[in-house]
């Protein structure tokens, strides 16, 4: 307990010093950035040699390195090339090729915990839709999904090219909010949206919303985009809305889920996929407007290098341990 309090006090002192003494913002020059990368690599080589010599690293050292790898790139100025993959391009093309006035259903099936991966996708996607004069219908199968949608929508609406259009809620976009019931909600929407969403988030009845006047079920939706972090999510949308009602669906998924979505992509059940943060960065690249995801890619790459390095070090330690054990047994 005493040690905990001491550490807590030390943290407060560090934070106070940062607020008072450190100039803001910090930006490393390219030379300093490469120097830091060199020092990290040297430290990793040092750890590797120590491990081979039988001095294993503690887990807190690994955490420290991951922390450094994630934080320092925020201050670096290094350009990282991003290539748009076909599945990301498909989402872009499917949306950009829609005629102005087409209706796009965007389902927010995630909560703030997955926001770092999915929020950049949502912002870029809304921006793309609004730039192409598409009508957006927002909903969520997760309680906090529509709130995330509102955050993304505000950012997209604040874009200079979109502010000029003077878009109106209820005419150009509508937020139907959250509805509980998982895939049963999708099932009911297949026959009538109104039964699941009698009002929008402002309490306006479904029939009084101009945008929804001609929207009865999925047959009135031109394209749908699902942002998913688990259950209910993309799998349920595919199983019910796509395979039963013929909805055209693209998806943005967390990295954890992404590999599971590729079979659906290959089978044509999904029309495009953004997988994790890299998918979000690729989509930003496709839309031509770099945003949060692109900014996050450098820390992402650094952290991957650190993880790979520690996997190699861990394996070296393991095989070395096995070798030492065999030697001792021989003696």
């Amino acid at each position: 307990m005493k040690q905990d309090l001491l550490l807590f006090g030390a943290l407060i002192v560090i934070v106070a010093m940062i607020f008072l003494l450190v100039p803001k913002p910090i930006v490393f020059s390219t030379t300093v950035s490469y120097l830091i990368i060199g020092l990290i690599l040297l430290a990793l080589i040092f750890i590797f040699i120590r491990t081979i010599n039988g001095h294993f690293v503690g887990r807190r050292i690994v955490f420290l390195f991951v922390g450094i790898a994630v934080v320092l790139p925020f201050f670096m100025k290094i350009h990282q090339p991003i290539r748009v993959s076909p599945e990301v391009q498909t989402v872009y093309d499917s949306t950009a090729q829609l005629k102005p006035g087409s209706k796009v259903l965007v389902s927010f099936d995630y909560d703030p915990a997955s926001a770092p991966e999915l929020q950049p996708m949502a912002e870029s996607y809304f921006r793309l839709c609004l730039e192409h004069d598409l009508k957006i219908i927002i909903m969520g199968l997760w309680p906090q999904g529509p709130q995330q949608a509102e955050l993304a929508l505000q950012i997209a609406l604040a874009d200079s090219s979109i502010v000029k259009k003077k878009l109106e809620r209820g005419i150009d976009y509508v937020d139907l909010g959250f509805q509980t019931g998982n895939e049963f909600v999708i099932q009911r929407m297949g026959t009538d949206f109104r039964t699941m969403f009698p009002r929008d988030t402002r309490g306006i009845p479904y029939d009084s919303i101009p945008l929804l006047r001609d929207v009865r079920n999925f047959s009135n939706i031109d394209y749908s985009f699902n942002l998913s972090a688990g259950y209910p999510g993309t799998v349920e949308w595919i199983q019910v809305a796509v395979d039963r009602y013929g909805l055209k669906l693209g998806a943005g998924n967390t990295g954890v889920q992404a590999t599971g979505m590729y079979p659906y992509l290959r089978a044509g059940q999904l029309k495009g996929l953004l997988g994790g943060l890299s998918g979000a960065a690729e989509f930003e690249r496709a839309t031509g407007k770099e945003g949060t995801a692109t900014f996050y890619m450098l820390p992402q790459s650094f952290s991957h290098v650190i993880v790979i390095a520690f996997i190699l070090i861990g394996n070296a330690a393991f095989f070395l341990g096995e070798k030492n054990k065999a030697r001792k047994e021989q003696k």
Binding site: V15, F19, V66, G67, V70, F74, S114, P116, E117, L277
Partner: peptide, 23 residues
């Protein structure tokens, strides 16, 4: 790994950007 790192990156950006204003 990419997914978990993304979450950490999001939080670190909040700490060093929104809170400490270093980014």
């Amino acid at each position: 790994v990419m997914s978990r790192m993304s979450l950490l990156i999001g939080r670190m950006e909040f700490i060093f950007g929104d809170w400490l204003r270093l980014i």
